[in-house]
């Protein structure tokens, strides 16, 4: 749908499908749970900061899971942490999305073989929408992951599945 700013010559009525409108509203203001785990969190911070500016996609960090739409798993998930992340996820209101950032959150990363205290992929605990590869992913890669998530939200439907 894109930006409607300055699209009309005078005030007007817009007719849109409720699905499109809702999806557009959702994907344009994805609030992120401000929550960092490891090295990737630093790249996540760099993405939020001045140079890459996450804000222009409507992503604003929220400290409370109750107000967040997306949780970015930014780093290695350990067994001690996994249950906490699950609880954070459960506290988030629907609709909620998960971006798994970096190799560690995807599959254990460099710790896959000898990491006796590392969870080999966050998808063993909570469902993931977008995987962003890299160790750590560049901020551009994270932005690409976010665009992919927006693409996914754009095609969501309100219809009841049979």
């Amino acid at each position: 749908m894109g930006l409607l700013d300055q699209e009309f010559s005078d005030s007007n009525i817009v007719i849109a499908k409720s699905e499109d409108l809702l999806n557009w509203a959702r994907l344009s203001s994805i609030w992120q749970l401000s929550f960092g785990l490891a090295c990737c969190a630093i790249e996540m911070m760099a993405t939020s900061a001045s140079h890459y500016d996450f804000d222009r996609f409507g992503v604003i960090p929220r400290p409370s899971p109750r107000q967040a739409d997306v949780i970015l798993i930014s780093g290695t998930v350990t067994l001690k942490m996994a249950t906490r992340i699950k609880r954070l996820y459960e506290q988030m209101p629907d609709p909620k999305y998960i971006i798994s950032m970096g190799s560690c959150a995807n599959c254990g990363g460099p710790y896959w073989e000898h990491g006796y205290h590392v969870l080999k992929g966050i998808d063993r605990v909570i469902p993931v929408d977008v995987y962003v590869p890299g160790c750590p992913p560049r901020p551009e890669a994270l932005l690409e992951g976010l665009l992919k998530l927006q693409e996914k939200i754009r095609h969501e439907t309100l219809r009841r599945t049979a």
Binding site: A82, T83, C107, G108, E113, Y116, K120
Partner: peptide
């Protein structure tokens, strides 16, 4: 550990 599988 606590129902979570550890090996890859």
């Amino acid at each position: 550990y606590n129902g979570m599988k550890i090996p890859y």
